[in-house]
Simulated assay, not measured.
Amino acid sequence: MADYVIPPPCQASVPVSNGPARFPIRRVFCVGRNYAAHAREMGKDPDREPPFFFMKPADAVVDAAGTIAYPSLTSALHHEIELVVALGSGGRDVAPGDALNLVWGYGVGVDLTRRDLQDEAKRLSRPWDWSKGFDASAPCTPIHPVAEVGHPEAGEIWLRVNGDLKQRGDLAELIWSVPEVISAISTAVDLAAGDLIFSGTPAGVGPMQPGDVVSGGAAGVAEFTFTVGPPVSP
């Protein structure tokens, strides 16, 4: 067993639906502008600009339940509901036709975004890390194995704030399908077991405030409810 000069960090993980064991998280990939309507609401043309990728730290993933603190450095915390793909094996240059063989299961997550910081980063042509990769920025439901939910290709995905419907789309509306997303990522890095992919959000992204109750889900996969807590002290 290796010796470390400081205690090693705990393994980031998320619950699974079929037992007490947890799914260990290696990396978190996120797909940008993978629904045409969302691309348009962000001022982009999905016909000319294919989806792109960014990442979050593994320990940004938290259970989509209970209370999630409103983060520091922002007054514009936005929700982005997404289907989450959990890989049970990996590979490089994976063909789309083989990609689903890598999938262990699926969940539903929320890509929390400090929109004011993201807008500033865009204006200054800077990275998005501070707007996307902060603590608890990736609430996620338990992961449901493929044996339970299959490979969802269609079905409603939605998010509500205080009972009001804010986001609604269909998984069939993804510009790049899940197999195509997996294949595309694998051309850049070696995918591995434990990687999560947040597959993109439909239109309707918007702000949340402390005290808001946020709920959502994807048909046939999972649902969640959490409360936005008080702001984190600077």
Rank of each mutant, 00 (worst) to 15 (best):
T113M: 02
M42N: 10
A60K: 09
A99N: 04
P207G: 15
S177K: 15
A219L: 03
L171R: 02
V214F: 05
G194L: 05
R22G: 01
A64Y: 00
I157K: 05
G211C: 08
R27W: 07
P71K: 06
V221M: 01
H151M: 10
D170I: 09
P7N: 12
D195L: 10
T227I: 14
P234I: 14
V14I: 09
F226C: 04
F226S: 03
A86Y: 11
V213R: 15
N34E: 08
L77D: 11
G105N: 01
L171I: 08
G91M: 12
W176R: 14
L171A: 02
V214L: 09
S186E: 11
E153A: 13
D47K: 12
L174C: 05
Q118W: 01
H78V: 02
A154T: 14
R48T: 15
A136Y: 00
A219I: 01
K56H: 01
V161Y: 07
E80W: 04
T67K: 11
A95D: 11
A203Q: 10
R92V: 15
V31D: 00
V221W: 02
V16Y: 00
G155M: 12
H38M: 04
P202Y: 05
V205H: 06
A99V: 06
D195Q: 12
N101R: 15
G220H: 04
K56D: 02
D135Y: 08
G109W: 03
A21V: 05
P15A: 12
A219M: 06
L174N: 00
I185K: 04
R123L: 09
T113P: 03
P46M: 09
G133D: 02
G155E: 10
Y70A: 01
K44A: 13
R33L: 06
V228L: 13
A136G: 00
H151W: 05
P57A: 07
K56Y: 03
Q11T: 07
A76S: 13
T225L: 09
I157T: 04
R40P: 10
P210D: 10
